[in-house]
Amino acid sequence: MTMPFDALEIPPTALDRGGVEILRAGIVEGGLHISLRRSFDDPQAWGIALADIARHVARIYAMETGAAESLTLERIRNMLDAEFDTPSDPGSTTAIS
Score class of each variant (00 low, 15 high):
A49K: 09
P4E: 07
N78L: 15
W46I: 00
T72F: 00
L50S: 07
T93V: 13
R38F: 03
L32G: 02
S70V: 01
E69W: 02
A25G: 08
P12T: 10
I53T: 10
S92Q: 13
A58E: 00
L71K: 10
I53M: 10
S88T: 07
D6C: 15
M63I: 12
P87S: 01
T86V: 15
M63A: 15
V28H: 10
D6P: 06
Y61V: 05
S70Q: 04
R59K: 15
M3W: 08
P90G: 09
M1H: 08
A67Q: 09
S70F: 00
L80K: 01
W46C: 05
S39V: 02
G26W: 05
L8Q: 14
E69M: 06
F84D: 04
E29W: 07
A25W: 00
A51F: 14
S35F: 14
S97G: 15
H56N: 12
E21H: 07
L23T: 10
A67M: 06
H56R: 11
A45K: 11
S92W: 12
G47Y: 03
F5A: 11
P4N: 11
M3D: 12
S70P: 00
E21L: 14
T94R: 03
D41P: 09
D85T: 00
L73Y: 06
E64K: 13
A25P: 00
